[in-house]
Design a protein around this nucleic acid. Structure first.
Lengths: 222, 222
DNA sequence: TAGATTGTTAATCGATTAACAATC
DNA sequence: TAGATTGTTAATCGATTAACAATC
């Protein structure tokens, strides 16, 4: 009955695709035309069945005994992730982090094009950061509509994060890349992806703490 | 036989602890002295059993019918994550992102203290970013040893990431917070935590692409 | 052809969620 | 006391890994 339910691709798969893409790009640079899952898996320290399933999610079909055509596979991943058509984005919050993202030119490869930044600080409004304008927040709704911008990159302080997110949603933003540590409660139709420094740092800190606990263990005093 | 094997805390648990910490901090500010799992779970949209297990991992013991003492719980999380003692770190790579991290003052709350940055670019060496020195890479080994710095935050370009990581490890760095998209192959004793923008962006991009695929579906031309 | 590799189904593993006894 | 909440064991769910037939 539920045989033809389409499951969305599991998030862990989506998260691994960029790593495959990088390996493939390097192989292409070296002139390789085909590659097997085993090869990719070994390169990244993963299980080859996992790689095969991940790649299958993008719609690519391989040849038994041969493997996958490298250019076709790169194309398949890029198409699947929507990296082939450029998507415009605004940075909301022109602080240190927001500024860094404005200056990062690696987003192009992922089809992400940051147009400009928005902020409420009069000292920042009217300036440019890495050649991109810092505009006042009240211009956001108008510009989101006129330029059909779907992605907002949220880099304000935690204290104003939710208030600003609400403004973004009302302005018509469809997806929020959330660099704050605030859990955003928004309508289910809005896509929220969290880039949580504190979560990552917690893993690092704990592993370091564990390591030190072990090394500091039973020392017999003289 | 294997009844007393100590399992390390699952990573998903570690990643959620900072969110609990934030909720608790807010409750403390409002003067709340006790809190139940249900309350925290509702606030964050999680399952209450999950919250209870996560908190138990930090060693806290609650009172049936009452809940947990807020200050004790905050303390338990901070101790568990090693946030109570300050850990020094170096930023390796003084580009846009490295600079942003040097300027971010939120790390203090997580016990992370960034001392200075290292870079190979003569134009950057000798300058300061947000009051912190940019030093030449060849001074890294000496300073890691003298100042007992355990954490290196890697923010160089992908092309030199692995080479620089190897230098960090040789210099005596114990944990690498890796902001590059390169999968680092280092000794198992070295802790590596990846902060992968491309993985996060892949999830966002795909969800947005899926959404558009649906909305653009069968349109009958006139 | 024989062997390597894909695609797919089954088994395992680990994390989440449900159930429930213990307890303040 | 009764009810709410903890702590813990059992059931469920989803992702990873293993097994294996199909195939170039």
């Amino acid at each position: 009955m539920n045989a033809n339910i389409i499951r969305p691709t599991p998030e862990p798969t989506l998260r691994r695709l960029p790593a495959y893409h990088r390996v493939l790009q390097r192989l292409l640079d070296r002139g390789r035309t085909v590659v097997s899952c085993t090869h990719i898996a070994e390169d990244l320290g993963l299980d080859s069945t996992q790689v095969r399933k991940d790649l299958a999610a993008t719609g690519i079909i391989g040849k038994p005994k041969v493997g996958y055509a490298v250019p076709a596979l790169i194309d398949s991943i890029e198409t699947y992730l929507g990296w082939k058509n450029v998507t415009d984005a605004f940075v909301i919050g022109a602080g240190h982090l927001g500024g860094a993202l404005l200056g990062y030119d690696g987003f192009k490869a992922y089809g992400l094009n940051i147009l400009s930044a928005f902020d409420n600080d009069p000292a920042k409004i009217g300036t440019t950061i890495y050649g991109k304008d810092v505009l006042p927040m009240d211009k956001l709704p108008d510009l989101v509509e006129r330029m059909h911008v779907g992605i907002g990159i949220l880099t304000v302080r935690a204290a104003s994060a939710h208030e600003v997110a609400d403004i973004m949603v009302m302005a018509g933003i469809k997806a929020i890349w959330n660099f704050t540590q605030v859990k955003l409660q928004v309508a289910p139709s809005i896509i929220v992806e969290n880039m949580d420094l504190s979560a990552s740092l917690a893993v690092l800190s704990r592993k370091l703490a564990e390591r030190n606990e072990v090394s500091v263990s039973p020392v017999i005093p003289l």
